[in-house]
Simulated assay, not measured.
Amino acid sequence: MHSASRRGVIAATLGLALGLPLTAVAADWPTKPVVLVVPQGTGSGSDVVARLLARYMAPALGQPVVVENRTGAGGIIAHQSVMRAPADGYTVLFTSTAQLLVVPALYASAKYTLDDFDPVAPVLRAPFALLVANTPGAPKTVKELVEALRAKPGAYASAGIGTMTHLGSEIFLKRAGVTASHVPYKGSGAALTDLMGGQVLFATDSLTAAMTHVRSGKLRALAVTGDKREASLPDVPTLAEAGLPGEPIGVIGGLFAPKGVPKDAAARLDKAVKEALQNPELAARFAATETGILRISNAEFLEQLRKATPFWQGLVRELDLKVE
């Protein structure tokens, strides 16, 4: 018998004899491939990042990391499948604010919460931008947009009811003390096309979706919604700098395991992700998609998620949003 395996058997036997819980993993964990579940389809932004993560995590783990796309029901299928998987570290989920925190408030069928998972590795942060068409008559500052809405409530576009782009605009309106009509679209592409065409006055959307149009001169970013200015938009103020302070608006995401994952396995996964995020190719991919690397500890990650949960879910309830 291999010495590591023999040590594992001895430890297990002693644990049983003493009535101790077997929560630790063997010193040679992992001994088989790790499955990384992605709620989005192949080719999506999350899928691309997950596959790069998987490629660079594998050498650190000494085992392949296999990406599985489990799409459907707004991410519910993927989250429920990982929630019900064995808590052994071999099945992890790549998810973020929208599907982890907002979807359970929108869909009665979700039946999962943050407490059903253990965060094992923070990965990304992605703020939004407050956008208007880059035309002579469009507002040039947040103050001008607020004044325009106060004089004549217009309309704003979103990627759909209950999306982060919808909720982000509602937060802006609430802080500014103005109103506007919501025009939901099927995705950011259609929403931003109509924004550029003048069918709506403004939108809140990710830098990933918007930056191509900002660089081409078709859209103007009035503010970014994070807690600091973005490197790609150094002259664009934050909402707080523009006179509308409050919690940062955006997405944070990372890897999650079923509740109760052994600490040793979680630590190995976290270390592998941190090593992967040091890779220049992965860093370049993040930069190209306007996604920031979330360089915080797991404890800080969980603290941010716990703080964000009542913030987003309270907004969903306040707007009386439900999707069946």
Rank of each mutant, 00 (worst) to 15 (best):
H2I: 15
L16W: 13
L18D: 06
T23Q: 07
V25H: 07
V35L: 10
V37P: 05
P39K: 05
T42R: 09
S46Y: 13
A54V: 10
Y56A: 02
L61E: 00
G62M: 14
E68C: 05
G72Y: 01
G72D: 11
A78C: 00
M83Q: 03
P86V: 06
D88E: 03
Y90G: 02
L93P: 04
T97R: 03
L100S: 02
L106M: 11
L106R: 12
L106G: 14
A108I: 12
K111N: 11
L124F: 15
P127F: 03
L131F: 07
A155S: 10
A157W: 05
I171M: 09
L192N: 13
L192D: 11
G197M: 02
L201N: 07
A203D: 11
L207F: 03
A209I: 11
V224T: 15
V224N: 15
V236N: 03
L239V: 02
L244V: 02
P245T: 08
E247I: 12
I249Y: 08
K259Y: 08
V261R: 00
D264V: 15
A265D: 14
L269V: 04
D270C: 06
V273W: 07
A284N: 14
T289F: 06
P310A: 12
Q313E: 13
R317N: 15
L321S: 05
